[in-house]
Nucleic acid binder design. Sequence first.
RNA 1: CGGGGCGUAGCGCAGCCCGGUAGCGCAUCUGCUUUGGGAGCAGAGGGUCGCAGGUUCAAAUCCUGUCGCCCCGACCA
Length: 490
Amino acid sequence: MAKNITTQQKDYSQWYLDIIREAKLAQHSPVRGCMVIRPNGYALWENMKAELDRMFKETGHENAYFPLFIPKSFLSKEAQHVEGFAKECAVITHSRLINTPDGVDVDPESRLEEELIVRPTSETIIWDTYRDWIQSYRDLPILVNQWANVVRWEMRTRLFLRTMEFLWQEGHTAHATREEAEIETRKMLEVYKTFAQDFMAMPVITGVKTASERFAGAVDTYCIEALMQDGKALQAGTSHFLGQNFAKAFNVTFQDSDGQLKYVWATSWGVSTRLIGGLIMTHSDDHGLVLPPRLAPTQVVMVPIWKSEEERTQVLSYIGPIRQALLNAGVRVKLDDRDNLKPGWKFTQYEIEGVPLRIAVGPRDTQNGNIELARRDTREKSVISKEGLEQKIPALLEEIQATLFTQALERRERDTHVATSYDAFKQILDEKGGFVYAHWDGTPETETKIKEETKATIRCIPFDNPHNSPGKCMVTGKSSEQMVLFARSY
RNA sequence: CGGGGCGUAGCGCAGCCCGGUAGCGCAUCUGCUUUGGGAGCAGAGGGUCGCAGGUUCAAAUCCUGUCGCCCCGACCA
């Protein structure tokens, strides 16, 4: 076991924090609830961002940037929206400081005429802008995304999963018809699902949120839900069909081809640095982080081993062509030839940091034309010929990627249960955790009762529901069209 | 906002009960030996003990206040 990492079994929450610290992903900032994303963590985010950005552009979206500050009055224009976010907004009230004997203080003379809020999300300022952009059906659709930071004044924070400031992308689209907006909402949810499964190797369930879990201001909220190793669910991404709510609130109309003036239909969708938390809690183990090869900043680390200066020269010149061949094959390779650290230390460190493959080369290998290859996911070591690595390594990386997904999927299946009674439901949650399918009568009252009594929430009503036959609500016995997906969640 | 914990060297901590002028491990620097799973020895540098008052000849230690962070809950991506 890597020292300094609490085992998952002993304390999963502490394990999570230890992984983030030891893998150098992030650290707490001097400000409560905020984090410093360290180079290892940011490189991971950059890789995630690059893939998502590519996928957004392939589906016709363009990037733009809207301001961090939003006039306070904007937030109040959509009733549900303000209700949802009012309690967690940072408010800018003053514009400068003055020197005092004790340092600096807010200058009372600088109070703003209209206070600004720091965006918790950008619907309001974007729809205020879209009013200027849209006159005719020929101006539609607008397919815009922005990469930004947002601030939500949270009471309780956890690194990556819930911080006061976080990085994300928010897509905001405007459409002429309801149907087109609904298709967009579902399309982007599929993009998220593809990203989660094919790149993060994190299986997700897609579905629709119940009214109480819906985004403030949305008509419908769709989500991808993942199941973590400790049996708790994580909402990993959301896509909202906003109907005409924001168009009406911000008076965004267009003249359609039939000459009629109509309100625009809207969507918004986002994923955040929370995904990094999900990634950690999907694959990593007591030895450290485990990264899927497609997102790993370093896919292969090369560790040379030598005793004498001659051996050093020999080993490094042996490694050179191998490294170049891998680079040519598009593999992200890092050579760690620092001489102040022992190979064993490096082995352990890269394991903690989750590098998928390690190639060690010492005098023994240069003699025999070999390399030592170690897989992070299985922790298996093998000595193989150096020939043909430029084919073998990319193939192995893909194999690891596939294995991680399969294992995560199998774990999720193991941790997914069906409850036919409320007693069984409670028992499953207390003894096993995980996803639980159960019948629900569709009322917010029953949903609240279940939440208060069990701390489990309805994660979603799955689109592709394996338990879609009618039955009786486990609590009230009223009729239910299909089972819904419950879990305790982050 | 409740409950718990913690602020002492870059990081992790001891010292506090019982006041006497600050210590351990890791890291850093220098030198030598080492290097196939977190190296060894020798030496060196680094701290207004969170902050502000108070008690005292003397405060990291006792008293009062205050600030901050973390963890566990209630709200949320």
